[in-house]
Simulated assay, not measured.
Amino acid sequence: MTDTGPWTGSAWWEHLVRAVPLAGEVATGEVRAGLDAGLDADLMTDGFVMELVSAELMVRVRAGDPAARDAMRALGAELEAGPPLVGEDVISAYLIHVPSPGEPGGDLADVLGPRVRAALDQDRDHRNEPTVAAFLDRLLQAVPALRPLADVERYGYHDEVLAHPFLGDVAEREIALLTDGASLEIDDDWTEDERSTVVRLFTSVDPDPAAEVRAVLDLLEAELGTDEAVDDLIATAFVEMLPDDDEPGTEIVGMLGARLRAELDAQRRQPR
């Protein structure tokens, strides 16, 4: 088994490390780094670790590392030939960082076998439900400052905005606006690029940043109760992200309209 601490991997990972040694090396380093950063050991599933490995290898591929490119191709081949115990979560975790055909590094997608390529195509042919797509359009029209967040969450062949991650980012931004960024918890060991990206996406130069918060909340209040899919999106991606009383930004709760507040209250009555 790979020596990664609490995570030892499945029998399939034991085989994978022999077949693609660089994947094992990366897995060891990524798991140890995650545990050192405080990640719960229970998260270290095969799929989670595969996503970490795929992400790091693709960083190296883009930097021109031929060994990483060979490892990514070998991983694709192993997933194609793997026995049924290789779950769809592992395949999806590998594919999430593989460029689409036509993108830089897209030749990795071109050499995938039919099983893995079918999974790639199914995943990236993603379309939002029409009511959700229309809701996102209305939100971006009402609050244009959110467009950079939406662009970060575009994905797939149709360049769709991933609705749940995007609205979760919106919640994080609005809370950050009310706390002057204190809720962002920027780590001291972040690079300058990481810091500048977070500042650009989650803060504002508007003299009245609370005006954006009110605009977002007003639109969500008006939308809640109009469509089941939109309701689910608002409830799970935005309302669930709102801070508890002892967390920074709790003043946003006092700005909620009646519908949003009722949804929050209903969620908080549920046992955690």
Rank of each mutant, 00 (worst) to 15 (best):
Arg138Glu: 15
Val59Tyr: 00
Val230Pro: 01
Asp65Phe: 01
Leu112Trp: 01
Leu167Ser: 06
Pro101Gly: 01
Glu14Phe: 03
Gly76Asn: 04
Glu160Pro: 05
Leu136Val: 13
Glu174Val: 11
Gly168Ser: 15
Asp42His: 11
Asp3Trp: 14
Val143Thr: 13
His126Ile: 08
Ala215Asn: 06
Ala68Val: 06
Glu263Leu: 14
Asp227Ser: 12
Ala67Thr: 12
Asp227Pro: 11
Val230Tyr: 00
Pro271Cys: 08
Ile96Asn: 05
Ile96Asp: 01
Ala118Lys: 05
Ala37Leu: 09
Ala145Met: 06
Arg147Thr: 13
Val116Lys: 00
Leu256Trp: 04
Gly34Gln: 09
Thr131Trp: 02
Pro84Arg: 12
Asp121His: 07
Gly105Lys: 04
Arg269Pro: 03
Ala41Glu: 13
Glu56Gly: 13
Gln122Ser: 12
Arg195Leu: 07
Thr2Trp: 12
Val199Pro: 03
Leu242Thr: 01
Phe48Lys: 08
Glu14His: 03
Thr250His: 15
Arg127Ser: 09
Leu201Gln: 02
Asp188Ile: 07
Arg138Gln: 14
Pro101Glu: 01
Pro66Cys: 08
Leu256Thr: 05
Phe166Ala: 05
Met50Gly: 01
Pro248His: 02
Arg124Asp: 06
Glu185Ser: 09
Pro6Glu: 11
Ala63Tyr: 00
Val253Tyr: 00
Arg138Ser: 14
Gly225Gln: 04
Leu75Met: 10
Ser54Arg: 06
Asp265Arg: 07
Arg154Asp: 09
